[in-house]
């Protein structure tokens, strides 16, 4: 298919080392801010309402980072600690990037255990389907170019 179908590429060791030393909150703040900038207005209000109050965790396994955020008043807000997020995603940075670039198919990553989803399946499907609905061609175009450049033998 494309860059995504091949084996996942792990972040280089030094990046991992930096990632592990990063405090969680600043990373979560940056991530929530990015979500608000790129996705919030594309999310239908009824979906945000359905996610209201829930906490989500995104674990970037090779970076040693766990990003935590909650949906509050239809915005994504960073969280420092969560007892039990409604959903926790686990994957390596490369796979998240190929998903965001729409180079990889989430079900395929799931079937291959490269994307692990823990928690409420209905909310997971709602999130997956809503993300599938959103068109952000410019961001995706940039991501695709970055991925191609990063892939060994990529053009």
């Amino acid at each position: 298919m494309n860059a995504a179908a091949s084996a996942p590429r792990k972040l280089p060791g030094p990046v991992r080392a930096v990632g592990r030393r990063l405090p969680r909150l600043p990373a979560s703040i940056a991530f929530a801010t990015a979500l608000n900038l790129t996705l919030r207005r594309k999310f239908p209000a009824d979906v945000l309402d359905r996610l209201e109050g829930h906490t989500f965790a995104i674990v970037v396994e090779d970076a040693g980072v766990e990003l935590l955020f909650r949906v509050r008043a239809r915005r994504f807000v960073p969280v420092a600690q969560a007892a039990e997020p409604v959903l926790r995603f686990r994957a390596v940075a490369w796979d998240y990037a190929t998903l965001a670039a729409r180079e990889a198919d989430p079900d395929t990553l799931f079937f291959n255990r490269r994307l692990v989803v823990e928690g409420d399946t209905e909310i997971a499907l709602l999130v997956k389907n809503t993300l599938d609905t959103i068109d952000i061609p410019r961001t995706r175009g940039i991501l695709r170019r970055v991925l191609r450049a990063a892939a060994p033998g990529g053009s």
Binding site: A4, R102, E103, A104, D105, P106, K128, D132
Partner: peptide
């Protein structure tokens, strides 16, 4: 119909 745009494209 429950699959992603990537699936449909491919």
């Amino acid at each position: 119909r429950q699959r992603s745009p990537v699936y449909v494209e491919t």
